[in-house]
Nucleic acid binder design. Sequence first.
DNA 1: ATACACGCCTGCTGGC
DNA 2: TGCCAGCAGGCGTGTA
Length: 311
Amino acid sequence: MPELPEVEVVRAGLAPAVTGAVITAVEVLDRRSLKRHDPAVGDFERLLAGARVSAAVRRGKFLWLPLDDETAAGDRAGARAIVGHLGMSGQMLLRTPDHPGDDRHARVRLNVEHPEHGELRIDFVDQRIFGSLAVDRMGPTDDGEIAGFSASVTGEWARSIPSQVSHIARDPLDPAFSDDLFAARLARRASGIKRVLLDQGVVSGIGNIYADESLWAVRLHPEQLASSLSRRRTTELLAAVRDVLGRALVEGGTSFDAQYVNVNGASGYFAHSLNAYGRGGEPCPRCGGPIRREAFMNRSSHYCPKCQRRR
DNA sequence: ATACACGCCTGCTGGC
DNA sequence: TGCCAGCAGGCGTGTA
């Protein structure tokens, strides 16, 4: 499901409930959801029992909960975090402990005790199991800047990132995102711009929906060579990406069905605002010509061939 | 460096 | 009603 706006909605919903909370019990209902957990780091359940969560942080589509481990003073070498990725169908549902456990696709449950909110339960629900939870080691960010978006991580600790996320580029809403670096990366790419937007090592957080929407907004053909864009066009594209992601975030994300929901199970409303994605055959809201849907990387691209010309 | 295929999973929809 | 193909918001690996 989730691209940056959807994951941010989840992160923001989780943050007040988990920050400062102690994990009291872990129930793994389906080990397949731990496929990205490296056993060499330790046993998933044992590492988490009794650990305290210090924040909820996000970069692109990855989110993580840094653990306030009891380590020797000043020694963060053993610092760890729970890394979560929602894949295509993952959800994090915030519940009271007595909530009936009737979710068909509940995979992992974290029971926590929060100093103010008391006992809570976080259910990781994931129909397709493309998502995962893992306990991962933290390391320094390669640029020395704050690792990702959160409201509460401060100080040196904020400049640490889970190893599984270290290869992921910053996302366009990250204050430390470098527009120049982005432009330089595009200039070196002899491939279609959509492919590059989807490359999480170039820019993170953008998936199929928001790639199509951003390209529609600036009238770029998905197969236009990234290296052919002028700096001015690159700047316009980046502005469109930020605009689309920002508006989707305000509307609570894009929901086509009950798959994408926030921590309370509620859907977002941005689906009503889509101009190209999922509108194959319908008239382009700008020029009236039919939106085309075509195969792309085992999925689909949606664009207006009339006003998104390839140059 | 880059592109493509494929595996990882489940469930829904449409055509026959 | 059944069956099968195709499709769905993503990522990582392996191969050419």
